[in-house]
Each structure stands twice: as structure tokens, then as C-alpha cells.
Write a protein that binds this DNA or RNA. Structure first.
Length: 229
DNA sequence: TAGGCCATCTGGTCCT
DNA sequence: AGGACCAGATGGCCTA
């Protein structure tokens, strides 16, 4: 949804680029990576086929005789020597695997970004269409969850009276806030830096929901919480 | 123009 | 062996 169009280079484009640069013998038809791999496997097979002695085709005349005992297939003599060709083939296979890995990595990152977009969708922002950066999204989500949790806890405590006997369903006082686990052990989110810090950046916060007001209250101290770093 | 953010490539490591 | 995951490097785009 929010994935930038220009970033979505197709594998074919990718290979076009890379084949042009990396491959010693760029194919004119620009195969997909699967096709390219197939082609490489074919090439490997061809290498193997070339290995056994050539068919002793007897050609008329003396020159034919010579070819009959010859070690080399006539049409195959062009091009690089065998060792070089083998190295080239290895290179091409390596290259092909790299391209496939690149594709997978790209897809993986796209999935990650899609998940991040989904997360953005459920986070309140102001203005509505403001796009949080990745780090802002993660920090805000973390804080938002923590604030909602606290809200639930306080609401539960209020409903149950001072002894608060039944806060079982919600985190008990002193239970690690999301922040503490997030930050790798730092104590609960520090009471308030400026509200915008909740969003991990210099953007204005969204509308002050109950949860956010809660969070603001918790964050009322003058230092930047470690989990914001 | 410097700095922030991002997408992509790449090689290494771990897992199945 | 092949795929997933990760972190570093690189280059493009955008904004103050």
C-alpha cells in the first residue's frame, strides 16, 4: 500500500542491470532468474557432454582421418579454453544464486514494510495521513501499547476499589511495562519528556486519547527515557 | 549542502 | 544445499 512504486524493480530489471555489468556473456533475451539458472544447468550439462570422446565420424579424405582420431569436437574449438569456461560457468552459477538471494531479500524487506504499514494503520497520527518513519512507528507502537495497558490497569483498579484484588487480568503494579522489556531492562518509561518524544521524533502527537494522557502523565520527568534512544 | 530516511545489494551465519 | 535472517555498505531522494 505505501510501498513506493519506483522501488519495486522487477527481478527482470534487476537482472538486466546486473547481467549487463557482471556477466561476461550477456544473453540477448534477458531470461528470468529461473530461466537463467536453467540455462546455466544446461551449460553444465553441455560441459559434461563435451567431456566424453567425440564421435569418431569418418569423413572422406585424409583430413577426415585426422578428425576421427582427434580429441576435439569440431564446432567446439571456438571460445575460451575449457578451464576458463568452467570458471566462467562457476561464476555464472554463483551470480545466479546471488540474484535469487537478492530477490528473496527484497521480498522479505517488502513483507517487513507491509507489516510496518499495517502497524501504522492502527496507530493514531496527526494529521491523519502523516507517515511515521520506521523507528517512529516502532517506538510509538511500543508506547501506545504500554499506555493502553496502563489505562486498562488503572481502570480495573478503580472499578475494584482500593484493595484492587482483581487486577489479575491486567498487569499488576510493578509488572514490567512493555518499555522495560523493550529497552532491555530499563525501568519503566520515564515519566515525561516532551509529549512529542512519545512518537520518537519531532512530530506533534495525535489527538490526546485517554491512553495518551496516561502516558504523558507517566512521562513527566525531565529526561529522555533510555528506551527512546 | 549536510543529514535523515530509505531501498537495495552483499556476504556471513544460522536453521531446516 | 538452500532459505531465512542479519548487519554493513552504498547510493538516491528529500528537507532544513
Amino acid at each position: 500500500m505505501l510501498v513506493k512504486a519506483e522501488v519495486l524493480a522487477t527481478p527482470a530489471e534487476d537482472e538486466l542491470l546486473l547481467l549487463g555489468l557482471g556477466s561476461p556473456a550477456p544473453s540477448p533475451s534477458l531470461p528470468s532468474s529461473a530461466e537463467e539458472e536453467e540455462e546455466e544447468e544446461e551449460e553444465e550439462e553441455e560441459e559434461l557432454r563435451a567431456a566424453p570422446p567425440a564421435r569418431p565420424v569418418e569423413a572422406p579424405g585424409g583430413r577426415g582421418l585426422r578428425r576421427a582420431e582427434g580429441k576435439r569436437r569440431p564446432g567446439r574449438s571456438r571460445g575460451a579454453p575449457r578451464a576458463a569456461r568452467t570458471a566462467e560457468t562457476a561464476q555464472r552459477i554463483k551470480r545466479s544464486r546471488r540474484l535469487k538471494a537478492n530477490n528473496r531479500e527484497r521480498n522479505r524487506m517488502h513483507n517487513l514494510n507491509a507489516a510496518l504499514d499495517a502497524l501504522r494503520d492502527v496507530l493514531p497520527t496527526f494529521p491523519e495521513d502523516a507517515k511515521l518513519t520506521k523507528i517512529e512507528t516502532l517506538r510509538f507502537a511500543h508506547n501506545y501499547i504500554w499506555a493502553l495497558t496502563e489505562t486498562l490497569r488503572l481502570a480495573g483498579a478503580a472499578r475494584l476499589g482500593p484493595d484492587g484484588a482483581a487486577a489479575a487480568a491486567v498487569p499488576a503494579e510493578g509488572s514490567p511495562s512493555p518499555a522495560s522489556s523493550w529497552s532491555g531492562g530499563a525501568a519503566s518509561p520515564a515519566p515525561s519528556a516532551s509529549p512529542r518524544l512519545i512518537f520518537g521524533g519531532d512530530r506533534e502527537p495525535p489527538e490526546p486519547t485517554a491512553a495518551k494522557l496516561e502516558a504523558d502523565q507517566e512521562m513527566r520527568v525531565g529526561q529522555t527515557p533510555p528506551w527512546m534512544m
